[in-house]
Design a protein around this nucleic acid. Structure first.
Length: 738
DNA sequence: GCCG
DNA sequence: CAGTACG
DNA sequence: CGGCCGTTACTG
């Protein structure tokens, strides 16, 4: 009840916000915009523009018609004045609002300390025509239109249905290829010549279908039935040897072909190369039992980032791994090596040439898959799953568990996708806590191997409470979530997301702008008062919104590396962020800069006085967005870079790291964010604190959480030691993807 | 949103 | 200081 | 009901 009321209140708040502010904003500017120009734009602007801009989160707007039918009521006269004004500005009011005249005070209160300006759920508050028509008008500047390939996606549930055999797959491949998948260049058909047999050998499961499809894209062939010439038997569903053998007529797994689990295929995709099949993590459980020894160690060290086999060996030599990190030295070496040396640079360049234009994994975004987020985990070889007791101990600390983002056949995939969309929606709503809850619920679901059907089943999962349980049941039973449909059809969110997509624009600013009557990026650019960063953010909206192919990240890094080495032959760097976690594409480029035994001052001086000026002069660095201005403080440089000859700016973050803090900095800069938060929360529960500088103990906190004592530094340099002290099993970067 |  | 950003 | 990462770092 309370919550309902609360929602109503919020709702009211929002309506009032729009209405009142629109009134307030009844300034001349509202009418400045020439209708003619706008009209013209509206015409040539497909109404997908907005979607395009938010490609990542917004998915397609499913049912507008439905929403459209509501609230045909006429707007109160008080509003019509506003409406009129806005119409002149070609900016329809995003409100229905029978009760416009509402509390201005509430406006200040509702956002509260926490800017938790969440809006009520439903409230389709739009008139039938306003939604679509507005969407059309809400066009942004032409430059913002995202290539259609990105947004076409989704809507694959139907297509999938037809993918039942090779020919159909080919057909679909063709369809998709023509529509959204840039054909994989011949040179990139890394799986060419391979013939796969899956266990089970069908594409009933969504995830498996997806992989089969993808494997074919990369040149592999799928054997519908057992035949000669099969090169690999790929076991899915985390079946063990025994279970897998049942799938064969002879009840025995044929000897010839290489036997691997599906993780191998997944990694081939993400590495864009045929991975060595001998690693333990690729073995089908049961077969690996034989060589049980050293399993743990191998698990970690056997996860080198096999980007391109040929580059690994060559560059491991040029390693400059800090001695303090022997534990994962190999890994660091490889990571570092990836950007090392001229050879590597060449490789990077070559890779970019061949891969650069290939939008990475468009299929990942395909329908049931979630945007940007990795598909559900399915099969952890981990045996400790069913009991739910082990989890109890570390309740809520996902940092305790392995999350490799395994692209598994998770029965809850459909649910996960919907919930993720909801999370995105709430994120664009400014409600960080709800967003967090949804994401954590998804993380929990990803670890479930059984399909969660009912509310009761859902409730047994930690991280899922009453409300989410109901939603899950709704999703499973009727295949959709009404709330989500409503949300996605809400134009206010579209604008909100659009604005929040600008660099250095958060929810408060975006809301304010909307309240001020701005509806397009052009509005903002011309009329809103923007700071420097925001202006740049708008100018390069599309650039910054785009994902960066892994290979290009390496190339940017290679350029930085070169300049860095030129300035100081002993300086080192590691690419962090999602790159270090093994992603096929990244949102930005994160690089840690450090040097053996060097302090922050030394690193900063080196970078700020030599490297960055050099790279800027070179034309590689385009602009600094957030970086220290004082010569004697600061630890980072945020800005943008572009490859020679490329017009696309990429967000580049450099972190200056003192030698003593390398481990903590690595953890921080590797992420992902939820992993870090989980780790930090875990630390605080153990009377410690973790930040990018180190792990501290004996933290005394006064009233509130005010910290009295700095605490004593426990560890800062050794990444693995930090895990150890925290009592968390070390997890390589690839497994930090909650 | 969930959890204690 | 609030806002934004970083993982 | 309050906490949910960081006394994180940078901007204006």
């Amino acid at each position: 009840m309370v919550s309902t009321q609360e929602k109503i209140e919020k709702d009211k708040f929002f309506r009032d916000l729009y209405l009142l502010d629109s009134l307030d904003d009844d300034s001349p500017e509202s009418e400045v915009e020439t209708p003619i120009r706008l009209a013209a734009k509206a015409k040539r602007q497909p109404d997908q523009t907005l979607d395009a801009v938010q490609h990542e989160r917004a998915k397609q707007i499913t049912t507008r018609g439905k929403v459209g039918e509501r609230r045909p009521e006429t707007v109160p006269s008080t509003v019509s004045a506003v409406d009129h004004t806005l119409k002149k500005a070609k900016v329809p009011l995003p409100v229905d609002a029978p009760k416009k005249k509402a509390l201005p005070e509430k406006r200040k209160r509702a956002p509260s300390t926490d800017r938790e300006l969440r809006r009520r759920d439903s409230e389709p508050a739009l008139t039938a025509k306003s939604a679509p028509s507005r969407a059309r008008r809400l066009k942004t500047s032409p430059s913002i239109v995202v290539d259609s390939a990105v947004q076409t996606t989704k809507r694959s549930s139907e297509k999938r249905k037809h993918v039942t055999d090779l020919s159909n797959i080919k057909q679909r491949k063709h369809q998709l290829g023509s529509k959204k998948l840039p054909p994989v260049p011949i040179g990139e058909q890394m799986l060419k010549g391979l013939l796969f047999y899956f266990v089970p050998n069908n594409d009933i499961c969504q995830a498996r279908r997806f992989r089969i499809h993808k494997a074919i894209q990369y040149g592999a062939a799928w054997a519908n039935e057992w035949c000669n010439g099969i090169t690999h038997i790929i076991v899915c569903d985390n079946l063990d040897v025994h279970e897998a053998s049942k799938e064969f007529a002879c009840k025995e797994i044929p000897r010839g072909p290489t036997l691997v689990n599906v993780n191998w295929l997944i990694e081939c995709f993400s590495r864009r190369a045929v991975c060595d099949t001998h690693w333990n993590r690729f073995q089908v459980s049961g077969s690996e039992a034989l060589k049980e020894t050293n399993k743990e160690q191998q698990q970690h060290q056997s996860k080198p980032l096999i980007e391109h086999e040929d580059s690994i060996d060559k560059h491991a030599v040029d390693e400059e791994t800090p001695e303090g990190l022997e534990a994962n030295a190999a890994e660091c070496a490889l990571l570092d090596a990836e950007t090392e040396s001229e050879d590597e640079l060449d490789n990077a360049i070559r890779d970019v040439r061949s891969l650069g234009s290939l939008s990475i994994d468009p299929s990942f975004d395909d329908g049931a898959k979630s945007p940007g987020d990795e598909p559900p985990v399915d099969q952890e070889p981990a045996p400790f799953h069913g009991d739910g007791k082990a989890r109890k101990e570390n309740a809520g600390f996902m940092c305790m568990e392995k999350h490799d983002g395994g692209k598994g056949d998770n029965p809850n995939e459909q649910t996960i996708v919907k919930l993720l969309k909801m999370a995105d929606y709430y994120s664009a709503t400014g409600d960080q806590w709800r967003t967090r809850a949804y994401r954590q619920a998804v993380a929990a679901l990803r670890k479930e191997r059984r399909l969660i059907r009912t509310k009761q089943e859902a409730l047994t999962v930690r991280g899922i409470g009453d409300r989410l349980a109901e939603k899950i049941q709704e999703i499973v039973s009727i295949g959709k979530l009404q709330r989500l449909d409503n949300a996605e059809a809400d134009p206010r969110d579209k604008i909100l997301r659009l604005f929040m997509g600008i660099y250095h624009v958060g929810f408060p600013t975006a809301s304010r702008w909307i309240a001020e009557g701005h509806r397009t990026l052009e509005d903002l650019y011309q009329k809103a008062d923007l700071n420097r960063n925001q202006r740049i953010g708008i100018e390069h909206y599309e650039d910054f919104q785009q994902r960066i192919p892994r290979a290009e990240v390496a190339q940017h890094a290679a350029i930085v590396k070169k300049a860095l080495r030129a300035a100081d032959t002993e300086a080192q760097m590691i690419i962090g962020g999602s790159y270090r976690r093994g992603s096929a594409d990244c949102g930005d480029i994160d690089i840690l800069i450090f040097k053996k035994d060097a302090g922050l001052d030394q690193i900063r001086a080196l970078m700020m006085e030599t490297v960055i000026p050099e790279l800027t002069a070179q034309g590689f660095l385009k602009v600094a967005l957030a970086t220290t201005h004082h010569q004697d403080s600061g630890s980072k440089w945020h800005g943008a870079s572009a490859l020679p000859g490329s017009k696309t700016w990429r967000r580049l973050d450099l972190l200056f790291v003192p030698w003593a803090e390398l481990g903590a900095a690595l953890i921080y800069f590797t992420g992902n964010d939820y992993f870090n938060r989980s780790l930090r929360l875990h630390a605080s529960r153990k009377q410690m604190r973790l930040n990018q500088h180190g792990l501290y103990a004996d933290v005394m906190r006064g009233q509130g959480r005010e910290r009295i004592t700095q605490g004593r530094l426990l560890e800062g340099h050794d990444e693995k030691r930090i895990f150890e002290i925290l009592g968390v099993t070390y997890r390589p970067p690839e497994h930090r993807n909650p």
